[in-house]
């Protein structure tokens, strides 16, 4: 992303008007600083209020929040995050496995394969994928993708059923983990592709030329001079994509059938996630139910925060590395 190429030149200039006091100076500085601090405060407030509003429900819970699979906070006061957290991580991991190779291919296409003239407009086309609202993907998933996947799902189950992901009895196809993961993959693809594209374009031209001068083919040149250079960037892009997938709500809320079990079967209608459960359960939740949903939101917040912070740290380290190498 362009934010990664911030330069030092644009840095602040030392204020040297000590002798020229101006009436507006202090208030302006204070307002600017306050805005920045407000941002930090919002982040802190999110954690604080999610915790404080979740606590009553967690106290009323008669099951262990972290190991319980079912979610019945409204009637029985029994609820746990286990199945939902599993579904969140599993669906996002699947989406990542689907999206990352395609995103790397797209990024390479834009940076090293497409004709110069077409590269920018084609890149914009991929960015458009990110502009489609989540709820539209959900609608598309339910109306188009779910029916489309039915026959291939049955084929996979019949012929490759020994493979745990494709196993399962009873209904095959429909609103499955696979359908949700594919929709998630489409949604996170543009962000992974955009960041990867930027780091691939930053790969030093002189190293690419060195590889070509050694008699490398285009692919060998990319393997020698582009991919190793871009690896940290691609990894953090994938992590950002993972964070995005885990927090994605409405599309999967429409697709996932809201079951509460832990299974690796991606072709049977068993799938759910924390975010989908919040969207589907909020409307009919009572006080305890809402507290329980807030508690699950807190878990989601913490997981995505960790993933995002990890990704940002990799990016920041790479920035220093790139600067030192320049």
């Amino acid at each position: 992303m362009t934010t990664n190429v911030r330069t030092r030149e644009g840095g602040p200039v030392k204020h040297r008007s000590a002798s020229r006091r101006s009436h507006g100076e202090a208030p302006f500085r204070i307002v600017s600083t306050a805005a920045g601090i407000l941002l930090l405060a919002i982040m802190a407030a999110i954690a604080v209020f999610l915790i404080s509003e979740a606590l009553p429900a967690l106290r009323a819970n008669e099951a262990d929040f972290f190991t319980e699979r079912t979610w019945n906070p409204n009637s029985e006061r029994v609820f746990g995050i286990a199945a939902l957290a599993f579904g969140t991580v599993f669906s996002s991991a699947l989406a990542l496995v689907i999206a990352t190779p395609i995103a790397i291919g797209v990024a390479l296409f834009i940076s090293h394969y497409a004709p110069r003239r077409l590269a920018a407009p084609l890149g914009y086309l991929i960015d458009l994928l990110a502009a489609v609202p989540s709820v539209v993907y959900g609608l598309w998933g339910v109306a188009f993708l779910v029916p489309l996947l039915r026959t291939p799902s049955q084929w996979l189950n019949e012929h490759l059923g020994w493979f745990p992901l494709f196993a399962g009895e009873g209904i095959i196809g429909g609103k499955t983990m696979l359908a949700g993961a594919i929709v998630l993959a489409i949604m996170i693809l543009p962000i992974i592709a955009a960041i990867s594209r930027e780091v691939f374009l930053q790969a030093p031209k002189m190293n690419e030329e060195a590889a070509l001068a050694l008699g490398a083919t285009r692919w060998e040149m990319i393997k020698m001079a582009v991919l190793p250079f871009g690896r940290p960037g691609v990894i953090s892009a994938a992590m950002l994509g993972l964070g995005r997938a885990m927090g994605e709500t409405i599309a999967v809320a429409l697709i996932f059938p809201a079951t509460f079990d832990i299974t690796f079967e991606i072709l049977t209608p068993h799938a759910n996630s924390i975010a989908a459960n919040i969207a589907n359960g909020f409307g009919e939740a009572n006080d305890i139910g809402r507290g329980a949903l807030i508690a699950s939101g807190l878990v989601l917040f913490v997981i995505t925060l960790l993933v995002n912070m990890g990704a940002r740290m990799i990016i920041n380290r790479r920035k220093e590395y790139a600067r030192a190498g320049a």
């Binding site: 941002l39 982040m43 999110i46 209020f49 927090g247 709500t249 919040i278 995505t304 995002n308 940002r312």
Partner: peptide, 21 residues
């Protein structure tokens, strides 16, 4: 750093926060 991290807040969490607060 936290502006970057904030970019990754799930939208549903932002909704829950405003609901809670």
């Amino acid at each position: 750093f936290f502006v970057d991290v904030m970019t990754g807040i799930p939208s549903v969490v932002a909704g829950l926060f405003v609901f809670a607060f």
